[in-house]
């Protein structure tokens, strides 16, 4: 470890003192800052970003809903592979036929 008053420390203190005294003129960057800031805040509060935030927050609720639906399907024994039902969407006649049989 260097002693506190080594020539390098003295030199470093001198340079740090100079840097401390030298303040950067930021007036050009500060000009119109509040206007830009308020515009950015308004942009961040836009409905699109609010909806995006809400939809992400709703994701776990949708996931739970999907799981509940899957469990309900398993419990009630609804067979989703029913070919008659699936065929009814492809063929309108089959759909009519299917509705006739249920009446």
């Amino acid at each position: 470890m260097n002693p506190p008053d080594s020539p390098l420390d003295v030199e470093l203190d001198r340079l740090l003192g100079q840097a401390r005294a030298q303040r950067v003129d930021t007036s050009a960057v500060e000009y119109g800052f509040e206007t830009r800031l308020i515009a950015r805040l308004k942009e961040k509060r836009e409905p699109s970003s609010v909806w995006a935030m809400i939809s992400w927050r709703m994701a776990p609720i949708f996931a739970v809903g999907m799981m509940a639906l899957a469990i309900w399907q398993m419990e009630t024994g609804v067979d989703t592979s029913d070919t008659t039902t699936l065929a009814s969407f492809d063929n309108p006649e089959a759909a009519d036929l299917w509705s006739d049989t249920t009446d």
Binding site: L12, L15, L16, Q18, A19, Q22, V24, D25
Partner: peptide, 13 residues
């Protein structure tokens, strides 16, 4: 900065 920095100060930065 508008003013020129001293070379020693440049070394520090």
């Amino acid at each position: 900065e508008p003013q020129q920095r001293h070379p020693d100060l440049e070394r520090l930065h």
